[in-house]
């Protein structure tokens, strides 16, 4: 898309705002609609938009696929690891009271934060990985035949 100047300029301005919004949705999910699932999807949309407008090679320079593949597994690991951490502290699996025995509700806050982060990381990774896999496939016909 070398000739679409307006699209490229607008995309450059939007990508940062979309990523910022994704972080807002991620960490403000306790107080307003949102959470890991939505934030992950929005974060992935930022990279997909970048990939569509500037081409896949540029997107893979920003967010290389080896890193994406690591993130896919890392998120599940954070989630499951939170449960293991609470077990090691002598509580039940995924019982967030373990993280602050004096104030169980503060412990809940920490636990929810960690778990939502895990969800967000996995969803971002999976969505970007799926987009890369689809876009990397050689097309059966040329763009002019559309």
């Amino acid at each position: 898309m070398h000739h679409h100047l307006i699209l490229r300029v607008v995309t450059k301005m939007l990508v940062g705002a979309i990523i910022l919004f994704a972080f807002y949705v991620q960490f403000h999910g306790d107080f307003s609609p949102g959470g890991g699932f939505q934030a992950g999807v929005i974060m992935a949309v930022a990279f997909i938009l970048y990939g569509i407008v500037f081409g896949l090679n540029k997107a893979e320079q920003v967010f290389p696929s080896w890193l994406v593949h690591k993130l896919v597994a890392l998120g599940v690991l954070i989630y499951a690891g939170t449960g293991v951490a609470s077990m090691l502290l002598g509580y039940n699996y995924l019982d967030y009271g373990a993280f602050n025995p004096q104030h169980p509700s503060h412990g809940q806050h920490w636990g929810i934060l960690a778990v939502e982060l895990g969800v967000g990381v996995t969803v971002t990774g999976v969505m970007v990985a799926i987009y890369y896999a689809f876009a990397n496939r050689p097309p059966p016909m040329k763009d002019e035949d559309w």
């Binding site: 959470g35 699932f37 999807v41 969803v123 799926i130 689809f134 496939r137 059966p140």
Partner: peptide, 23 residues
Amino acid sequence: ILTAIVVGIATTSLALALIIRIR
């Protein structure tokens, strides 16, 4: 339903990947 929507898109993309392989 919130979780089902995200799982739905993941499984839909798996189906689309299968369609690409079928073609």
